[in-house]
Amino acid sequence: MNTAVILGASSGVGRALADKLARDGCNLVLIARSKRDLEANATNISLKYNIDVQVYAIDINEKYERDKLISYVSNWKNINSVFITVGEMVEDDNGLQDCNIVDRLVNSNFLSITHFLSALIQSADKRVSLNIFLMSSITISRPRKSNLVYATSKMAIDFYCRGLQHLLADTSIRIVIFRLGYIDTAMSYGKKLLLHPVSPGLAAQKILTKLNKRRRIYYYPGYWRYIVFAVKMVPWIIYKKMGF
């Protein structure tokens, strides 16, 4: 039976992915910061779908805990898929905030994930296929004044994973990047958005349909590919006046 690891499984897309994978009979390893939420998710899923669920309540921003997670990684067997859905955003992220907040955002959205991926890839059995799915964001399309550090760190992890795609091109490890648009999670709830957000359940369902496809980068919802292209094409003289 397949086993999938979900990093950031306590809420949003991570939680929805756990539910959909469990429905398909996949055993799960759930990782997130909050033990209570994680255990509630694990109990709910295992009762509903009768599968094995392991939980690791770990704050990957904390070096000691991250090291603990990395030591677990090397012991995991029969892992087929790893979904990285972690992400952290703060209000008024214009790049000029307190250094501790900047450090935290960069850590959550970039550094901790690179440490995790590095350990995971090094310990992976090269004979067995492993699919790694990174949830990136459409916010990386062009720098703007809001969510600046968040977008920068998302850009960094997106760039890092594209580099890993190149590094691992001829191996059994496959890395797929999903650049997600507006998803109806705690990050977007209550915010005035240009477009209606998609439910995490629907996003998870769509992501899982791409598991066996060959492309390396996906946009979801798909129309964001065109919006991103259009935003990139806007001349600076107009772009600088845009308030989004």
């Binding site: 809420s11 949003g12 209570r36």
Partner: peptide
């Protein structure tokens, strides 16, 4: 309206 997803929130 607040819609928390985690207990601490």
């Amino acid at each position: 309206i607040e819609r928390p997803e985690k207990y601490n929130h």
